[in-house]
């Protein structure tokens, strides 16, 4: 099978200290990949390096066999909520409309088709009733759904989500994970940065365990092993067992 994203020997150094070291993996298409690791493990940096947003020391990233600069439009990125100024004078529907920007010529403004696409995407995430609200008036979970709608409107084959579940309500979390599953079934490849270990095995198809180096990558059953998880979290976890098998708790 051809791979969706292929990374070879990727290393990133920030101000003289190593953020990522020699990462190589090969992700096949149409799956939900969780990128897991402790704070400072380089999860966000990995995404940014893959997208060419931070300078990599060496390494190679290809998406569907092409270099990243040729397929940028096909990659949708959902930023960490903490990166956004929610006082910005922008309505929900205008945020979603930004998803059309990569596809428009540099001088062109979004037109009728783009607007329709934006409203469709808002309907998909269940936020259509909020389209005229200022983005800061929504709850964290609703904001996250709006940014997911923007990614849908962009219509890429590959999605990167940076900590989409951080600080949001459980119903939004459920809506988002259900939608991500649907998108995966439609053929998209989705990478989700995630730091909470509790629902990892329910949410994802594949897992990537990261702590500056790649500790494990592959099907979740193979990667979500106490030894590997413990290595990623430098032993700072408590492992508990219950009748279903194992439960991992960070500490």
């Amino acid at each position: 099978m051809t791979s969706a994203v292929q990374v070879k020997n990727l290393s990133v150094t920030y101000h003289g200290h190593t953020a990522l070291e020699n990462i190589s993996f090969d992700a096949s298409p149409q799956q939900l990949v969780g990128i897991i690791g402790p704070n400072g493990a380089g999860k966000s940096t990995l995404i940014k390096a893959m997208l060419g947003m931070v300078r990599k020391n060496h390494g190679e990233v290809t998406v569907f066999g092409k270099s990243i600069s040729k397929v940028r439009k096909q990659i949708a990125y959902v930023p960490q909520r903490s990166m956004i100024d929610f006082d910005f004078p922008v309505l929900v529907e205008d945020v979603v409309l930004m998803g059309s920007y990569p596809h428009l010529k540099w001088w062109k403004r979004p037109g009728k088709n783009e607007r329709k696409q934006a409203l469709d995407s808002l309907t998909q995430v269940g936020m259509i009733d909020y389209r005229k609200r200022q983005i800061g008036e929504l709850s964290g979970g609703q904001q996250q759904r709006v940014f997911l709608a923007r990614a849908l409107a962009q219509g890429g084959d590959i999605l990167f989500l940076d900590e989409p579940f951080a600080g949001i309500d459980i119903s939004s979390e459920n809506i988002i994970i259900e939608l991500l599953g649907k998108l995966r079934d439609e053929g998209k490849t989705i990478f989700v940065v995630h730091h909470d270990l509790s629902k990892v095995d329910k949410y994802f198809d594949s897992l990537m365990l990261l702590n500056k180096t790649l500790i494990g990558f592959g099907e979740k059953e193979k990667v979500f092993q106490p030894e590997l998880v413990s290595r990623a979290y430098n032993g700072n976890i408590a492992l508990l067992s219950d009748k279903d098998g194992k439960v991992v708790v960070t500490g």
Partner: peptide, 10 residues
């Protein structure tokens, strides 16, 4: 509004 997405799309 969103410098990270701006960078991501080039």
């Amino acid at each position: 509004f969103d410098p990270t997405m701006a960078q991501a799309i080039g």
